[in-house]
Each structure stands twice: as C-alpha cells, then as structure tokens.
Computed example of a mutant assay.
Amino acid sequence: MMRALKSIPQPIDHGRYFESTLDILNYQLRKYKTQQEQIDTSTSSERFACGWPVPQFQRPLVWSRAQQVAFIESAWLGLPLGTYTLHEEDWDDSGKALPFSGCVIDGQQRLTALEQYWDDQFTVFDLYWSELDHRDMCRFMNIKFAHYRAALWSESEIHDLYNRMALGGTPHTAEQRAGIHDTQ
C-alpha cells in the first residue's frame, strides 16, 4: 500500500512588514479627525481605530482601562508592543473604496488604546498626554510599532487571517499570572 505524499502548506500571505513609529499612527488619527465629515458612511465601517476602519466581523472593544494603561506603559518602558495588521487601500475606477480597503485586520485593541491615550481619556504614570512636555511627546512618537499590510481581497482569506491571528491564544487565569502567589 502506497502512502499519499503529504506536505506542509505554504505560508499564509499576511502582508509586507513595516517597522514604523507611533507618529505614523498619530498622523493617521489626526488626518481622520479632520476629514471625518467627508467619509462616505455608506461604504465605510461604523467603528474606527486610529482612523482606520474596523470590519463588522471583529469583536467589540474588550480591553479594560487597566489593560490599555499597561499597554501604553509598556511602550514608555521600551517593551515589545507586538504588531498590528492593516489591509491595503484600494479604490474602484469611480474612486469608491473597495471592501476592506485600509481596514484593521488585527490590533484594534492596541490602536484604540493609543487613540484614547492621545485623546486624554486616561493617564499613564499619573499624566495625561496633553500634560507631557514636547521632549516626552517626541520620545513617545519615536517608539517603534511594527505592522503588516496585507492585500488579500477575498473576504474568506481576510476572515481566515483574522481568526488565525486573533483566536489562537489561551488567556491566563488569575492564578497563572506572575507575582500574585503567596510564597508562604
């Protein structure tokens, strides 16, 4: 009996890798806010993160304020921030954005934490963003936050990529967190 040949599948195309800084996200957010009235709401998302549309299939915001603060603290402390993934932007011949154009595939919680921090919705190290001096603002804006830009255009491929990126982990229980056990 001959065994069928098996092989490992080819990698999923999750996009091109970019190592950019937080100022790119802040610029996108400011651009979005100044053009918000001009956005065609018939073709765009109802939710946005740092100015990029969030597809309807994504879960709502779930990070607590403490998780948002911890993420921003991690940025200030120079810890790895992970990545976020955007879909390429593209338009049809009439200038209308194609479905999923520019959408957030992964990273909605992180991007929203940054947006809310820049909007002074919470403090980090007891300071609102607007209370920082120019030197500290520049330091924060120069923090690296890598991202990917995917160009899949098939809704099922986008769903598959999202599910593989967002649903693979198992959250730690409270008992599994470091430093909370009584050492007695």
Rank of each mutant, 00 (worst) to 15 (best):
A70I: 08
P60D: 12
H181G: 11
R135Y: 04
E88Y: 03
M165L: 14
A70E: 15
R16G: 11
W118E: 00
K96F: 05
G179C: 05
Q176R: 00
Y17K: 12
V62F: 10
Y27M: 15
S154C: 02
T112D: 00
G107H: 04
Q28K: 09
A146C: 14
D23Q: 08
Q176G: 13
D23R: 10
W118M: 12
A75V: 13
L79E: 03
H87A: 02
D23K: 13
T83M: 12
I8S: 12
G169R: 08
N163P: 01
F18Y: 15
Y27A: 13
L5V: 13
T123E: 01
E155W: 00
Q38G: 06
M165S: 11
W52N: 07
D40G: 05
I158M: 06
Y27D: 13
M141W: 11
R47S: 07
G15M: 02
Y32G: 01
H172R: 14
W76H: 09
F122M: 06
K33W: 08
Y84Q: 03
I39G: 00
L81P: 13
L127R: 13
S45L: 03
G78M: 09
Y148K: 12
R135M: 09
H134P: 06
Q56K: 15
L86Q: 04
A113D: 04
K33C: 08
Q184E: 08
I24A: 13
Y128I: 09
W63Q: 06
G179D: 03
A113W: 00
D119N: 13
Q116A: 01
Y117S: 06
E131R: 15
F18T: 12
S42Q: 10
F125Y: 11
P9N: 07
F122D: 08
C103H: 09
R30A: 04
D136T: 10
Q176K: 13
Y117I: 00
I24D: 08
V104P: 04
A146M: 12
Q36M: 15
D119F: 08
L98Q: 03
T112M: 01
Q58P: 07
W76S: 00
G168R: 11
L167Q: 10
Q109S: 14
Q176D: 13
F125I: 05
A49S: 15
Q67T: 01
H147K: 11
